[in-house]
Each structure stands twice: as structure tokens, then as C-alpha cells.
Design a protein around this nucleic acid. Structure first.
Lengths: 180, 180
DNA sequence: AGCGCTATTGGACCAAAGGACAGTGCCGCG
DNA sequence: CGCGGCACTGTCCTTTGGTCCAATAGCGCT
């Protein structure tokens, strides 16, 4: 196998992903492409994989994670996040009928390592998940049995760690990696 | 990330693949498992991936290939053969077309009775899309060349039509995380 | 022409979010 | 023991979001 060039495509949120890939292909027709998305979207990922990219991951992933992605792709593999994999599996109805519930025992703790949530403390993750489900601070407080004030503290901490400015951006990041 | 043990499971053709994996898991609960199949079967592969294996390939593959598989898995990836990946992508065509369909309605205001956006006016859709991308009212205003006041009006209208209480819920619906 | 719909905008007000400052208490570790 | 990390909480303030009233102008249809 010839050593291929590895090229990173950081998606511009305002343009269609496939057209950005097409533009990149003109410059690098034979390279292995890894797509970085600010707001990961499984639909985009599916389209991009169908178009032959080798990896699709969150642009906010840590450097170590991105290095891992690079290693996988260089070794000839594809980088598919857990959510997308689940989705691919779920959309294969015959596979589902064979699994007989085994898929439901997928271990969440073994989630892929470029998950931005992995940088958060346990409590922060709980708060982030709640917010990502659409809860207000008051609702999160009720759900977790803490004060609204504490929720705000955690939310602010999550923003800092994930480098987002508000809950809306948080939702986009968290839900880009997870399936409801 | 700690270096995990890599275990190869060479499938016995006479026993169900999943039960063989279960047996192996008892001995090696924390290892990364690569499955070798004498007669590769995509259905089996799907089941095994759902059950958490990291690789599935032909037992008659060359040593070089198997080494490649090992490298990918060690680097944290999944080894999915090309045919399986194509099958997974192909089997998601309905899902893909649904997504694309939704995208088309966003772009072309095509009517789709299952798409919550179809009940919105063109302008409302633009605002909703912008919000769903994470923009604040002020940003939406700038993007669309209108005042923040007008954005608020549209946003409020969108909330009413889609029966949501705030932008967070709107994002969940527009981005497909919640039913309208 | 009249009507309904849409896009646009304003004023006013309150709720919620976000952030900067502060603090306490618990736990694990060196 | 001292320290850092974490969870929890408070006060205070600003900004943003959301809602209720109102209005005008343009367009398409009957």
C-alpha cells in the first residue's frame, strides 16, 4: 500500500460539507481526508463517508485525540464516532433483528475517546446532558437535587472546558455526538 | 488512554458468533477483540460490532493485512471491511434520503408533512435555521439584515407554530433530536 | 377594492441566562 | 498536615431572551 497524504478538512459551517470536500479533492485528489466539524452532524458524516472520506470528528477534540484519529487513518482504517456507528447499525434492520437486544448493552463508558464530554467531571457531564436535553437551569436543578445557583456554576465550568459561549452551542456540541 | 490487550477471536463455524464472543469476554473482559471469520458474514459482523468488538475480518487474510487491522484497533479505531462499510452506508440510504430530504426542505422550502419546518414561512425558516446553527438574536439579525426586534418577532412566531417554549427546544426539533 | 398573510419594527416589561466576585466542606494524595 | 480538585452555594450585575401590546407596508387573491 502506497503511503498516502493525510489532509484535514475543517468545515466552514456556512457552506455545504460535500461541496467543501469537492473543492478539497481538486487540490488533493489522492489524499486521505479527515473532516473536522465545529458542529458534528451524523447526516453530514454519512454523506462524507459515502463520498470517501476517511474520518469525521469534532473540531473541538483534543490534540491527543486528533493524533489518534490520524494514526487510525494512516493505518488504513476509518474513524467513525460511536454515535455514527450506532446509527449505521441501527439503520440496518436485519442486523437489529439478529442482535436481540445485545446492542442495548453497549457500554457508554467505553465511548470513543474524542468525545468532548470526556474532559468534564462526572457532575458536569450530568448537567451538560440535562441541558442538552433541553432543560432550563431551574429544571436541571430540580432533576439533580441541587440549587439553580450550582447548576449555573457547573454550566459555566462546562462552557469553559468545552470552549463554548452559551448553552445553545453546548447543545450543538453534545448532541452532535449523541443520539436521542 | 491505557494500552488495552488485543485479543483475536477465531470463529468456530458451528457455533453462534455472539455466544463465542460472550465466552471470550468472560476470560478477557477488558480486551479489544478482533474477530476472524472463515466465512465472513456481514450479518454476523453487524451483530458483533453491536456487541462491541473492534474488528472483524477474514481469517484467511494475509499477515500484512492482519497487522494492519491490529494497528488500527490498537490506535483506537474500528476495523470494518470495505464491503461492510459500503453495506452499512447503502442500508442507510433511506435514513440518508430522509436527512437530505429535510435539508432540501430547508434549502428549497419543499413541503414535507413530517418536517416541522414546513409549517413555517420562508423567513421564519431562515430565522429558525440560523438559531439552530447557534446564532443569538443579534447575530441572526446581522446575518439576515434585519433588526433584532424583527428576529424576536419571527422567533416568537416560530415557537408558536412549532409549539416550543424556547430556542433550546427549537434547536432540538430542527436538528432532529425531538419530535415536533 | 377589500382582505389575509407576511415582513418589518417599536415600546415596555419580566424571566432567564451568564459571569465575576466570594465562600465552605469533603476527599484523596503526597 | 497542607494542598488541589470537586461540589455546593451566595450576592450582585449585565445581557439576552421572550412576551404582550401596537403599528405600517407590500403582495396576492377574490
Amino acid at each position: 500500500m502506497p503511503v498516502a497524504t493525510l489532509v484535514w478538512l475543517h468545515l466552514d459551517d456556512d457552506l455545504p460539507a460535500l461541496s467543501q470536500l469537492a473543492g478539497l479533492r481538486k487540490l488533493h485528489p489522492d489524499s486521505l481526508v479527515i473532516v473536522l466539524a465545529n458542529q458534528p452532524d451524523d447526516g453530514d458524516a454519512l454523506s462524507l463517508f459515502s463520498a470517501g472520506v476517511s474520518g469525521y470528528c469534532n473540531a473541538h477534540a483534543t490534540v491527543a485525540n486528533l493524533r489518534q484519529v490520524a494514526n487510525v487513518v494512516k493505518a488504513g482504517g476509518l474513524w467513525i464516532g460511536e454515535t455514527l456507528m450506532k446509527r449505521l447499525l441501527a439503520s440496518t434492520q436485519s442486523a437489529l433483528s439478529r442482535i436481540s437486544g445485545a446492542a442495548l448493552s453497549l457500554d457508554e463508558a467505553a465511548s470513543d475517546s474524542n468525545d468532548p464530554m470526556s474532559t468534564l467531571t462526572k457532575r458536569e457531564q450530568e448537567v451538560a446532558r440535562s441541558v442538552a436535553n433541553g432543560s432550563s437551569n431551574k429544571e436541571v436543578a430540580r432533576e439533580l437535587g441541587i440549587t439553580e445557583r450550582t447548576v449555573k456554576a457547573h454550566v459555566g465550568s462546562v462552557f469553559k472546558k468545552l470552549n463554548v459561549r452559551d448553552r445553545l452551542q453546548l447543545v450543538l456540541i453534545v448532541n452532535g455526538r449523541r443520539q436521542a
